[in-house]
Amino acid sequence: MNELDFENQIHSIAQQTNYPQTPDIAGFVTAHLQPVTKHRFFSRTLAWSLTLIVVLFLSLMLIPPARAAILEFIQIGIVRIFPRSVEPTAEAPRTATPESIAPVTAAPYLESSTLLIDLSRLAGERTLPQAQNLVASYYPILLPTHPPDLGAPDHVFVQDADGAMSILVWLDPNDPEKILMSLHIIPEGSWAIHKAEPVVIQETEVNGQRAVWAVGPYPLRLSNGDLEFMRLIDGHVLIWAVDDVTYRLESNLSMEEAIKIAESLQPVP
């Protein structure tokens, strides 16, 4: 039997499949799209109790240590990593570009670095629109608007890591062998968040939320299917979280420049 006959037979048999009756998906979905109905009646006592709780909560939020404890308890703004060390002096020599660790405001802007891996070895390369479609159910792909002339990433990868992890890579326009930076966007529940244990150099903030400035490898999938812990470039990584999504910006910029870029992320127009 030739390939076409075989294909036709498979198609023909497949069309005879008996499926269970399709349940009322639309009814369920429509019911769950309805706005939550508001309670019409609050007793005076309940209203006063709630007011008291809110006032107490707001008061606690004005006290920095209490606020930090509350935010940590309810997991808002927590960067989902497990740092091994927070001693900057002990860990700083691990970095290959120590001058960019220090908060030097006059540091070169968007200085490129040699790629540590041939990008063609990475699995899951996509166009930006393809990647947007693939990850749309997890998160929107955000792009930096700073610096203004940065433009769209040169390479976009979407890798499966118990959730679609996006990796955006910008190359040096003057030297495609070098990389300006990479941005990893990792959804909640992905093992890519917990597998990597970067060495934290210092804690900082992105848009007022806790972030860390670190070095260290992270898991990437190669096109041959292997999973390897590596870095794309010889630099540092800024890690922060927004809602359920963790961001990892890798570059050899100063921390201040990396934060500016992180704070400039906007949805793709």
Partner: peptide, 15 residues
Amino acid sequence: AQETFLRAWKALKRF
């Protein structure tokens, strides 16, 4: 199937 349509609804602005 239910989850698919609920997720798609939430992500519809990006479609």
